[in-house]
Design a protein around this nucleic acid. Structure first.
Lengths: 222, 222
DNA sequence: CAAAAAATCCCCTGAAACAGTGAGCTGCCC
DNA sequence: GGGCAGCTCACTGTTTCAGGGGATTTTTTG
């Protein structure tokens, strides 16, 4: 226990921190690589453009830190963080996003992330974030001075099954339940059941709020 | 005619270009101001945090160039560009957005913008954009090499009336037609008519695609 | 293997949404 | 003052959704 504390809290800046960067925008990957390369003690051992690739690379390289975009197709950064923390609790995670998506930050934190960076962060901010997180602290690059009430209001990312995601996407594409049933070769009753579960999980009471929530939680690709 | 060409095409870098910056994020305004101040020949004469304020400031200062965010509450940058080009055709407009919103770019261009910048653009890119645009050229900071087919696929921003926007927002908030009728003190039939017009204008055939389209066109604030 | 999770299916009722058509009233612009 | 856009309201159907219940089979996972 004491050893663990030492390990976590005394990460000397001289140590070689192995980092994996995950983002679906090549521009961001390149920019991040360039900036991280200027930071001594950090070594970018791999990068990935989606969550599946990220999980592979993590298994292969066993990094100390994963810096991941929050918004990615198929599996979001929030879900990736959740999976990573479950399988590799010792790996630190920093979420990345743009200005407009402050709403995701606490979702990310609740799912295991240790820090948050805006994509336009400077080299200094990135370095500060990495040092903080590696020392076991929480780093947030924006002012997240929220009241307890506001924190309570942040909803946790709903966990959907594969079939539910599939049906949610088709609903978002404008298909009706009968059309979905025909497309997936399943009964209308089944589609109806999935739809009802989606309404429950996304805390919606009709199609409009279902779609809105789905887009808010980045579960629908438009 | 020849004089006009001369005026447009020979904007010397020594000239003092009056610029107004419009963005609802203070961070972006500050960053933009800092970067523009480093560019000689450019003078930031005002800034605004929404379209209404922008129109006031334009009337007051009569700038040469307006740099505006595409995503803003109430009136979007696309609509602002359209209004500006109508009332002040000589003023150049550069739209600004984040990585994820490439879909808006051509909408913006179709509504009168002269250039497009991503928010993470460097000082050099911004300078290049301003020089290009002031010389009557089109500047796009991302690779928008789209096929003619893709260009055709870009839908033009639908024009909604005030009442339609109001009802669209309430639909997006999850209210049913009877609830909207009660809230706005109008008949259920009226709400139904507006809803039908929204479905027509947004090219949707049910609530799901209506909400999706509305968010895509930035007509719904979530 | 056994438990748990996911996916499948069925029935019911009432409410809401979708589709089509027609029409009166107001304010604004040319 | 005529035309136009926007807002309002009405009527009649049909289809889909929401909400409630219960149930079986397949797949995943410890």
């Amino acid at each position: 226990m004491e050893l663990l504390c030492l390990l976590n809290l005394n990460w000397s800046p001289m140590d070689n921190i192995k980092v994996i960067v995950v983002d679906d925008h090549p521009m961001v990957i390149e920019g991040m690589k360039a900036m991280l390369n200027q930071i001594r003690s950090v070594q970018v051992c791999a990068f990935a453009s989606n969550a599946y690739e990220a999980l592979d690379k993590v298994n292969e390289h066993l990094p100390d830190l994963v810096i991941t975009d929050i918004n990615m197709p198929e599996i979001s950064g929030v879900e990736l963080a959740s999976k990573l923390k479950k399988d590799f609790p010792q790996i630190k995670i920093i979420g990345m996003s743009t200005f407009n998506e402050r709403s995701y930050i606490l979702q990310m934190m609740q799912n295991g992330a240790d820090g948050y960076l805006i994509k336009s962060a400077s080299k200094e901010e990135i370095e500060e974030a990495i040092v903080s997180v590696m020392n076991g602290k929480i780093y947030l690059s924006v002012d997240t001075a929220m009241t307890t009430q506001e924190r309570r209001d942040i909803k946790t990312q709903p966990v959907l099954t594969r079939r539910e995601k599939e049906i949610l996407q088709l609903i978002g594409d404008g298909l009706t339940n009968p059309q979905i049933a025909e497309k997936l070769f399943i009964s209308l009753n089944t589609v109806d059941t999935h739809r009802k579960n989606l309404l429950l999980k996304l805390d919606a009471n009709n199609t409009a709020s279902l779609v809105r929530q789905a887009i808010y939680f980045n579960l629908l690709y438009i």
